[in-house]
């Protein structure tokens, strides 16, 4: 059982702050590190894997500093986001080399087990240069699992995977989590994270925006005000009944046509809208959410 502890960690590059005063504890089980692109997820993973020094604060694994401490890699497995590998090797040669570098007593057997775990046995004797993105991702996984680490850090592991490979990796991560390993992976997709991780840490613009189980994070994200643009057969008539509904916070008739609605409760609004339209006999031509981008969700989280 291993725990990574970040204590008031900041990291800046000249005058750009990549991580801003983050404190978090990553314990056994699967943790999802969620945030939009450029939020500082990769920087956090680099800090947690000993590949970046914090500008201030401390990052430790079971009390041991990670920076400039090679011995931590006995416990840590890292799957970097970058795709570059030793392309001139076969998958098997690459994983065996990783096993040898870990000083394992039977590198070939350990490599075979890790390759089987990621279902790459059939392709193991092909050179890595011929691998698809998903295969590369899996052979990277195998190389990081070959020494059976108690901590596994994965930077955007689902990128480039097809749905079947995604499901398989999700199963694998869940299994490793239930075995008591400390697994942390980053993603910018909430649905992806909540399928695997019970615990979610949200980072936005280098700040630790939220932390909790996926239910709490999901509520935080969906209970926020939502904006929609409606195109209807009779804007004014539908607007008048919408404004009377408790799920709606505000209604604006747009000069160019259509209604802009701010819903306070997304769930209730999505039920109320079709009912009200039918009851008033107003035909709904178009319902468009206007701020569904992940950035706006995160922006809301930070401001709340």
């Amino acid at each position: 059982m291993s725990t990574i502890q970040l204590d008031h960690v900041s990291r800046w590059y000249r005058n750009v702050v990549a991580v801003n005063d983050v404190s978090m504890t990553i314990g056994p089980g699967v943790t999802g590190l969620l945030g939009p692109n450029g939020a500082g997820k990769s920087t956090l993973i680099a800090l947690m894997s000993g590949f970046l020094a914090p500008s201030t604060g401390t990052v430790t694994l079971d009390g041991e500093p990670l920076w400039r401490n090679e011995s931590v890699y006995r416990q840590v497995g890292l799957v970097p986001e970058r795709e570059a590998l030793f392309d001139y090797l076969t998958g098997r040669q690459f994983v065996v080399a990783n096993a040898e570098l870990h000083g394992l007593s039977d590198p070939a057997a350990a490599a075979q087990a890790a390759i089987a775990l990621v279902e790459m046995t059939d392709a193991q004797d092909r050179t890595i240069s011929t691998y698809s993105k998903g295969m590369r991702q899996r052979i990277k996984m195998a190389s990081s699992l070959v020494h059976e680490p108690s901590v596994l850090l994965l930077d955007e592991p689902f990128n480039g995977m097809d749905p079947r490979q995604r499901m398989h990796l999700m199963d694998l991560l869940r299994r490793m989590g239930t075995e008591g390993r400390t697994v942390l992976f980053s993603s910018h997709i909430l649905e992806e994270v909540e399928q695997v991780a019970r615990q979610i840490e949200v980072v936005v613009a280098g700040r630790h925006a939220a932390s909790g189980d996926f239910g709490a994070i999901r509520r935080l994200m969906t209970d926020r005000p939502n904006r929609f643009v409606l195109r209807t057969a009779d804007d004014r008539r539908l607007a008048s009944v919408l404004v009377a509904d408790p799920s709606v916070r505000g209604v604006l008739l747009r000069t160019e046509g259509g209604i802009e609605v701010e819903a306070g409760d997304f769930g209730r609004f999505s039920e109320a809208l079709p009912k009200l339209a039918r009851q008033e006999g107003v035909r709904l031509l178009e319902v468009t959410p206007t701020d569904e981008s992940l950035e706006s969700v995160f922006a809301y989280l930070v401001s709340s």
Binding site: S49, F51, E70, S71, V72, Y73, R74, V76, G77, L78, P80, R82, A84, L85, F86, F94, N98, L101, H102, G103, S143, S144
Partner: peptide
């Protein structure tokens, strides 16, 4: 290309 990380993430 960052692949040196596979050599460096080792206890050597």
């Amino acid at each position: 290309d960052g692949s040196v990380a596979y050599l460096l993430a080792k206890p050597i």
